[in-house]
Design a protein around this nucleic acid. Structure first.
Lengths: 117, 117
DNA sequence: GGCATGATATAGTCAGTCTACACAACATTC
DNA sequence: GAATGTTGTGTAGACTGACTATATCATGCC
């Protein structure tokens, strides 16, 4: 019986975005994707395997990425994922949705101090 | 039987933050809180009542806000909410959590282009 | 009476992240 | 050859919280 989950570190939906972005320069496998996200976020974002793999399967099912087995740099079998053309488009769309959302929330948190109530 | 929900506009957890922030200058009622969020976000964020009221009850149950009945500017009965001292602290904490998260995601989306892999 | 508006509320659905485990393959070491 | 560590993938189950849809009530107005 799994214990009490503390509330999610990551906001729902952003993980897909981070994974797709990580795959933009080229193919990669799950473990390395998680590592890359952790490192580029300066250890702020830690993607656990219980979030990572369901997300990868989800993205593959939707056709944003495709996968094939290969060997990792360490010589272990690993599943390499790659952005599909559709995934590339989707990434661009999700990215601007994120920018818009972050900006909107920023507006509420720090309003532009217009006059007129 | 409720229909198919399109995916959430808002990311999980952010609504609480927006509500608390809206109450920072002073007390307000639900309808007006939603209106304020919509306006200050330039209509990007639309909080529906099915999200709003559960969130208000949740925040009240946690002790971040308290409530009393009164009359709105329009002469209708309305439930006015006010930040508690604990809520004020919680807002500050949530706010910096949001800033950190947004920054972390920004780092992954637009890495700082350091040399070295 | 009928209708629009302001305001609060709840039921039920669903997506997605979390914790906690499990497991396979290989290398190293004793 | 047994134990151990590392790399890598995976699943089960719980939980949170936002969504759609709908209901209710009061007031003002024609």
């Amino acid at each position: 019986m799994p214990g009490r989950p503390s509330r999610p570190e990551l906001l729902q939906g952003t993980l897909d975005l981070l994974i797709l972005r990580t795959l933009l320069p080229g193919r990669n496998h799950g473990h390395a994707i998680a590592r890359h996200i952790r490192r580029t976020s300066e250890d702020l974002l830690q993607v656990e395997s219980g979030s990572l793999y369901p997300a990868l399967h989800r993205l593959e099912a939707k056709g944003w990425i495709d996968a094939s087995w290969d060997l990792s740099e360490m010589g272990k079998r690993a599943r390499y994922y790659r952005l599909t053309p559709a995934g590339r488009k989707h990434l661009a769309a999700e990215r601007s949705k994120w920018e818009a959302l972050a900006r909107a929330i920023g507006l509420v948190l720090n309003p532009a101090e217009q006059e007129g109530q």
